[in-house]
Write a protein that binds this DNA or RNA. Sequence first.
DNA 1: ACAACATGCAGCGGC
DNA 2: CCGCTGCATGTTGTA
Length: 170
Amino acid sequence: MCRFKFRVNVLQISVVYGLRQASKTEKNLKFLLQKVLKQSDVGSLGRIVLPKREAETHLPQLESRDGISIAMEDIGTSRVWNMKYRFWPNNKSKMYLLENTGDFVRANGLQEDDFIVIYADIKCGKYLIRGVKVRQNGPKSEGKKPAKKSHRDLSSTAASISSPVAQAVR
DNA sequence: ACAACATGCAGCGGC
DNA sequence: CCGCTGCATGTTGTA
């Protein structure tokens, strides 16, 4: 039961944002996971490494390393990308990844240090993905969220939303 | 010491 | 020959 660590950071603000938006549209979005993108995630490989624990907890169980195909609706553009969720064997463990992410990354102009958030639409049983840019000094600040790369200095704020998943699930 | 993960890179297939 | 696929290896953070 101690499997949940309180990995609190500012990026979770996006969860609240997502839920508000969900209320407005009467769609129920459940936060699944997020990933700060590395160079290898936004490069030409077109694949994004997903955090293991969150993936195993919130995404479908994978029977084989070939994984499954997942339709991901881009929250920003409403476009739907057909991605693949799979894993690789790695040491005695597994590495989880999302493939065919190249178009999504390019369409959103995502770069290193930007991040993605993945939600599940409870109502439709769909998956949704959102790319969030974190430009602090880009040519044009296109950041959708004012979230900056802070450390863990929002403990008090975070405390009030300490369990976004629990809130999302009700 | 161990687990997660960012990236290197070999092998293979398409051009 | 070049790019992609799939794993291996090095690095970094956690216990």
